[in-house]
Design a protein around this nucleic acid. Structure first.
Length: 658
DNA sequence: CAGCGCACTATTTTT
DNA sequence: TAGTGCGCTG
């Protein structure tokens, strides 16, 4: 009874309550921004388990990101306690789990590896020589699109067929799959082997952020839902921003065609933003022809109008943001032109209540620079994928190699790190030797007697093998975190990376690893490797940290902040223009801007500049067409100029006019 | 094999 | 403009 009460179904609005109580048959929940989506999903799950006796194993809950999965899990635990929990995770984690169980049905080996984008490039380099990484990336992206659309090499466009085919056979040879394969192969598995499908226990499916599902994911879903048809998808077509990754809004708009007798529930009450922000955002999204009319409303009190600030250039833009935050945080009083209002709010906010959103990472750079100068604590998300940071990647590759020495990509990365006299030439010799004998690379390394190397090289190699074997032994006996510490020490990783930020990253990874210490040593290592395969910056970022968050519009999806700044609201940036006259998919760009706007709870500041430095050249730039769609009555207009342009002047950053 | 210096290219979004 | 990548030299 105690638990039942915790569900608080009475606190839900009528539509939410209905969504929480309908379990059977296909259900589409069209949930506007801030409409309490997460809450509904969590309540619905708890309601199923507690009030309706549905077994957790029968429930499958798919989220868009790992972070969202964690949040959802916490939320549900908060309601039902640490009971048995349903599976909560991303498409990738679900499919990986299925593949790990049924790998043998496909021609996969046990312990197949997962290649991340960097590994993909390495692999592609082996197939196509003397081509720039960037072109390889482009090629891989095209292959990715094929996989997302369930196209095999034979079905792929002619120009990339051969590359795709060779890439797949190279992956197979290295016993690896890439991110897209995880979905594609799961589809093939479930499609070909009904008995596997039958064995899966899921009877009730829920998919969050459904508008960003691609074809491959959708087909997997259809298979999973085939028997029981209890599928509930939740999302908002206006927030679909991943078309470039193969997401297809048609999956959302045409859901009813695949699932007849569809029930539709709309969540239109917004619990997040002030009326001004909602009105402004709706004015923008209504510019899309495929926008479905709806009535987003709120009971929240009137707030400030959307602030539209015209800054002279990108430095003035950053300055405006910084000064505004400082004012709210009570740092500077001489700018208190709106004194009464400022003193109103200043007390309540912490640094973590502010976020700066931008279209491209390059904008984040200037902001980072000036934030650093200002002394305001901040954290930047995703400028580089966490796992792409070289120091993290090094440690992870050590672990991967230790876990599975046949992981050649990983082994090669660390074999000469730190420098131990095993350079490119030596590696090539070993590789050739291995190839001739048809043996794995690491095995070749161990055949010191017959390897065609000089004594110097052999000595280096022998030393490497010795230390490496120590790690392998340790991996079976010691805690994961100790293994990592040891690897860092013995390889002088911290000498290699003297930069404090990089060292902190490694400590971050180490901190994350501690939770795997509870598992038996080798198992802990294994799980850690699988977990980090999809790891992202976002997953590491700490929302409780007292810092302003800097992030891209894409990365802002699913988050909310009391005060949001959208920087660079300019033609060319949003909508983004790819040099020349090639404009990006305008409706999608509009949705992206909409997503950004709707992150704001109390205040939204949109900033645009007159001039922006691109490539060391100052380019005149105009206000974004999306902003022009916001009626003036919802706007509060401002200007911000950096007055003093003398270089290195001590006063430079203080002379500001409001 | 590693470090340095020159030259060239780059700016979309990511599970 | 600035960061990277390649090639040359020690």
């Amino acid at each position: 009874m105690e638990v039942l009460k915790a569900l608080d179904l009475d606190l839900l609005n009528d539509n939410q309550r209905e969504a929480v109580n309908v379990f059977n048959g296909p259900l589409l929940i069209a949930a506007g921004p801030g409409s309490g989506k997460t809450r509904v999903i969590a309540c619905r799950t708890a309601n199923m388990i507690i009030n309706n006796g549905i077994a957790p194993e029968e429930i499958l809950l798919i989220t868009f990101s790992k972070k969202a999965a964690n949040e959802m899990q916490e939320r549900i635990v908060g309601m039902i306690g640490e009971l048995n929990l349903p599976f909560i995770g991303t498409f990738h984690s679900l499919c990986l789990r299925i593949l790990r169980t049924y790998y043998f049905k496909l021609s996969l080996n046990k312990n197949f590896k997962i290649y991340d984008p960097a590994d993909q490039i390495h692999l592609m380099q082996k197939i196509i020589h003397d081509v720039k990484d960037k072109s390889l990336r482009e090629l891989l992206d095209r292959i990715s699109v094929c996989k997302n659309n369930l196209l095999t090499p034979l079905e792929a466009p002619g120009e990339i067929q051969e590359a795709y085919r060779q890439y797949q056979s190279a992956l197979k040879e290295e016993n690896a799959v890439d991110f897209d394969d995880i979905i594609f192969k799961t589809y093939q598995l479930l499609n070909k082997f009904p008995e596997v499908l039958e064995k899966l226990s899921f009877k009730y499916l829920m998919v969050d952020e459904y508008q960003d599902t691609n074809k491959a994911q959708y087909e997997v879903l259809k298979l999973l839902a085939k028997r029981d048809k209890n599928i509930c998808v939740i999302g908002d077509a206006d927030q679909s921003i991943y078309a470039f990754r193969g997401a297809n809004i048609r999956n959302f708009l045409n859901f009813g065609e695949d699932f007849t007798d569809l029930k539709l529930i709309k969540l239109e009450q917004n619990y997040r933003s002030s009326p001004q922000i909602i009105k402004g955002a709706e004015a923008v999204i209504e510019g899309n022809s495929d926008h479905m009319q709806r009535n987003l409303w709120t009971e929240k009190a009137e707030g400030r109008r959307v602030v539209l600030c015209n800054a002279s250039n990108e430095k003035a833009e950053a300055d405006y943001i910084i000064k505004t935050i400082q004012v709210y945080m009570g740092g500077i009083s001489r700018y208190d032109i709106e004194a009464d209002r400022v003193s109103d709010v200043a007390s309540g906010y912490g640094f973590s209540d502010f976020a700066v959103l931008y279209r491209t990472h390059m904008q984040g750079k200037i902001l980072e620079e000036l934030f650093l100068k200002s002394g305001i604590p901040f954290q930047q998300i995703g400028a580089e994928n966490f796992y792409n940071k070289s120091e993290i990647k090094d440690v992870l590759c050590y672990l991967r190699a230790v876990f599975d020495p046949s992981d050649e990509t990983a082994l090669l990365r660390i074999i000469n790190k730190p420098v131990r006299g095993i350079g490119a030439v030596t590696i090539e010799k070993i590789r050739l030797y291995a190839k001739n004998l048809g043996i794995p690379f690491y095995q070749a390394c161990q055949e010191l007697d017959t390897l065609p190397l000089n004594d110097e090289n052999k000595k280096s190699l022998a030393e490497f093998i010795k230390i490496f074997e120590e790690f392998r032994l340790m991996a079976t006996k010691e805690k994961l975190s100790d293994l990592i510490k040891n690897i860092c020490e013995k390889n002088q990783i911290f000498d290699l990376y003297k930069d404090k930020k990089r060292q902190d990253n490694i400590f971050g990874l180490l901190g994350f690893s501690v939770q795997f210490d509870l598992l038996p040593p080798f198992k802990g290592l294994e799980n850690f490797i699988f977990e980090t395969a999809f790891m992202q910056d976002k997953d590491i970022y700490d929302e409780n940290k007292n810092a302003v968050t800097l992030l891209t519009l894409h990365a802002s999806k699913g988050l909310e902040f009391p005060v949001v700044f959208i920087a660079g609201a300019e033609e060319g940036l949003i909508p983004y223009k790819h040099s020349e006259e090639v404009l990006m998919n305008e409706p999608e760009e509009r949705r992206l801007f909409y997503v950004g706007m709707t992150r704001a709870k109390d205040e939204l500041h949109i900033i645009h500049t007159n001039e922006r430095n691109l490539f060391g050249e100052n380019i005149k730039i105009e206000l974004s067409r999306f902003v022009r769609d916001i009626p003036s009555e919802f706007l509060e207009k401002k200007e911000h100029v950096l007055k003093n342009r003398r270089k290195k002047s001590k006063n430079e950053d203080q002379l500001t006019i409001w």
